[in-house]
């Protein structure tokens, strides 16, 4: 069992009506190739949206649009109720402070140690060294990698790199975290650890997130398990049953730039769409 402490600091109350992320008729094309064809969806506060879809379906593009790393051709993107579609780089930089991003391969800076990678955002903001050290250690403890603090990224395994990536994304207490296929290429137990971190963020910290994946195991863990803390601060993961159903996790499936499903995991399993059926069962 993992020990935990509050990762996200209490923040000023924001109206729960405003969704964390909202897409309205967003379109994107590279030359003649349509990537997103007028998609609409919302991620509510504290909700985890699992985005499923085959390779090249436009899943990762959604994340890049939210961060402003790509610009939409048409439509509106709202983050925390603010329209970021035409925001300039300065406004985007401010907006990005609210968002943590976990990249597919970790995307750690090769030339920096684990400590410097995790400390990066705070160091850039000119925060005091002692405060940075405290925060970095707290984050590395959250991902259970305190021992790797002085290592270089090249010395880490794939799973450890992703976990450092998660620690780096969580520094600065973002209210939203975007996961871009964080378990791709990892062995099942390590992939499970990554999912547990996402569940902890969702259930214990109230973080809104988008979890892009094409692995059904991730879907199963995230949509059927929840995290609780006992009196001694230890974290447990329990499965939802007949009496309890998770309402803070939704699933969305994308195919060729269109959303072909948006709902709960139970509804997904009952879908008659042949593509969805094939995606879930592999047959």
């Amino acid at each position: 069992m993992l020990e935990t402490e509050a990762i996200i600091q209490p923040r000023t109350a924001i109206s729960p009506v405003i969704p964390a992320i909202e897409f309205r008729d967003v379109e994107l094309a590279f030359d003649d190739r349509v990537i997103l064809d007028g998609i609409n969806f919302t991620v509510r506060r504290g909700e985890t949206k699992i985005v499923l879809g085959g390779s090249g379906s436009g899943k990762s593009t959604i994340i890049k649009l939210i961060l402003g790393l790509l610009r939409a051709d048409a439509g509106t993107i709202l983050v925390d109720g603010e329209d970021i579609t035409n925001a300039d780089e300065q406004e985007l930089t401010e907006m990005r402070k609210k968002i943590g991003m976990v990249f597919q391969e970790g995307a750690l800076f090769d030339s920096l140690s684990v400590y410097d990678n995790v400390a990066y955002r705070l160091a850039e903001e000119g925060i005091d060294d002692d405060e940075i050290e405290h925060e970095v250690i707290r984050m590395l403890r959250f991902v259970d990698l305190e021992d790797a603090i002085d290592k270089m990224p090249i010395e880490l395994s794939g799973g450890m790199r992703r976990r450092v990536g998660i620690a780096r994304a969580l520094v600065g207490s973002p209210s939203m975290v975007l996961f871009d296929e964080p378990t791709a290429g990892l062995d099942p137990p390590t992939a499970r650890t990554i999912c547990e971190l996402a569940i902890k963020l969702r259930d214990l910290e109230g973080v809104s997130s988008i979890f892009v994946t094409h692995e059904m195991n991730n879907l199963r863990y995230l949509s059927s398990e929840y995290a609780i803390v006992d009196g001694e601060g230890r974290v447990f993961f329990e499965e939802e049953g007949d009496k309890l159903c998770l309402i803070n996790t939704k699933v969305m499936m994308i195919k060729q730039g269109n959303i072909i499903f948006d709902g709960t995991d139970e509804e997904l399993k009952l879908s008659n769409d042949p593509y969805i059926h094939r995606f879930i069962t592999g047959r």
């Binding site: 990005r96 391969e105 995307a107 750690l108």
Partner: peptide
């Protein structure tokens, strides 16, 4: 290629 530039921008650095 290893998305470090994207990560840098995502972390608020130009």
């Amino acid at each position: 290629v290893s998305q470090q530039i994207d990560a840098m921008r995502a972390l608020g650095t130009s």
